[in-house]
Write a protein that binds this DNA or RNA. Sequence first.
RNA 1: GGGGGCGUAGCUCAGUUUGGUUAGAGCACUCGACUGUCACUCGAGAGGUCGCGGGUUCGAGCCCCGUCGCUCCCGCCA
Length: 589
Amino acid sequence: MRTHTCGSLTLDHVGQQVRLGGWVHRSRDLGGLVFLDLRDRTGVVQLAFGPAWSDANTLTAAAAVGVESVIVIEGTVVARAEQQRNADMSTGDIDVQVTSVRVVGAASTPAFPVAPAKGDKLPSEELRLRHRYLDLRRADLQRNLMLRHKLTQATRRFLDSRGFLELETPILTKPTPEGARDYLVPSRVHPGEFYALPQSPQIYKQLFMCAGYDRYFQIARCFRDEDLRADRQPEFTQIDIEASFVGQEDILSTAEALIAELWRTAGVPAESPFPRMTYAHAMEHYGCDRPDLRYGLELHDVTPVFAASELSFVQAAIARGERVRGLRVPGGAALSRKQTDDLEIVAKGAGASGLIVVKRTETGLDGKVAKFLAADAADQLGLAVGELGLYVAAPDHVASPALDRVRQTVAQRLELIPSDVHAFVVVTDFPMFEKDPNTGALGAVHHPFTAPHPEDLALLDSAPERARALAYDIVYDGLELGGGSIRISDSALQARIFSLLGIDDVTAQARFGFLLEALRAGAPPHGGIAFGLDRITMLLAGATSLRDVIAFPKTTAARALFEGAPSPVPAADLLELSLAVASRSGGNA
RNA sequence: GGGGGCGUAGCUCAGUUUGGUUAGAGCACUCGACUGUCACUCGAGAGGUCGCGGGUUCGAGCCCCGUCGCUCCCGCCA
């Protein structure tokens, strides 16, 4: 039906008869002459209609056709006169002089403009989602989804070339009490029983390893019924990878090479391997497990300086075994009182009881607490003239997140984040467990199948909360791209970990029996990693919302506005599923 | 579950502070003019449940209460 696509035509095609199909992007009716911009996903080309080459019917049809209508045309590619060329269009050197036009899909006036009008903002998110077929016609979204395609294809090529098998896992799976809330699917044939949509293919990929499919990957859809954010959708896509007879380095080198390949696919330079950092180092020097290394502002311990001070609240904190940590801000002494007060608000918002602020000026140390510090405190703190010091006296679990927030806020306010520099880092040696602050119970930091670090096996008995795991994250500009671990392949060790997590044998059997059984049936050492494809695409597309890289996303209330999901179902359908809708206090529809 | 922002013509927005005649603009749309435009231009016209419900008032787009939708954040997301 078509001989060419709209965006492909150039001066090389001059003189050729072409047949094109596309959407009317804009129209300009000059009376005797009519110009239509014809758009497909490859680009836009200008169609020219004139009495010298178009018959009367063609001219009339061109003048009458509405924007966003689909037309199929025949015509001749001609070079434009020099002064008529449009340097802003890739096809701006040519016109197609149309000899016949057929309106194959007349469009009613669109609910919002697809062609960008200068100065016009995007329509509201609600409207864009309700008329998603229109929004998806916009060049921005087409570019994003085409990038997504390239990234998934690059992933497949890369992993296939390294011997990974793309295998599918069930969408109807078993509910899991751990982790996020499950999306549940009622079983018709088993009244009162439910499937769950997978939060990730975690257990299935381990079963593949036990079955000998030693290199697996999947572009896997995952589902989590939690509240949404700009970077969180209820269903999302992971690049899910697992391999056997591997250690942490094998997984990481493959994962880093894949990420570098994806970045190059998007035209962003990236070289693997990436710098490494332990979790302990990241927490000590950045206060978080996914540090943004595009700028400095590292944290350091200044407890000794404050131990010698006359600040009673700091003395008391140090006596409790707490530390004083903080950061030096070059040029920060220029910040106003209001600005440093704002930083304290940020620290308090993150849970700190306060923020110690000192400035080193030409005349010495400045700030509310300066007079309680030693005369040479500025030197001890390492503060140069013009620098600001920001400190928190608190237990690490309070100070770290507060200083992380302060560090990020300072970097943004002082515009210390270079726009042309990006920073990958691999964070390793995550702890096995975290303690519930209320109950003191241990929970898995990664997931309950994560192998402990071999050097820390003895700690499982004496101090499990200090045991490290063979777990790792890949971080980019302070954002987690993905993470994984080496798994436990020994059923006795797995049972041990379950018991530390407070999962008794009966419960473990009920929840994960099929995995434990497989581990006892001859399991190779194995491990893997998973990346958030949506987030990676968003970063590489320069988008600010996952909705701009997902074709049919949900709203923050987890609704699909175009097709109207979720929706009520007929009572008969509920009956067939042995379900009844309970009314909740306050009442709902 | 909690907090913030937004909701006025098909679209993007003024108007809401301080309630008062017939709610405006640009774009889009309809009609007319126009042979080199590319955000074409020019002229004319049509287009409104001011999200929805209730209240206060002589009078509500504007004030109050409730509610719905979209969005950002906290909680949550092994």
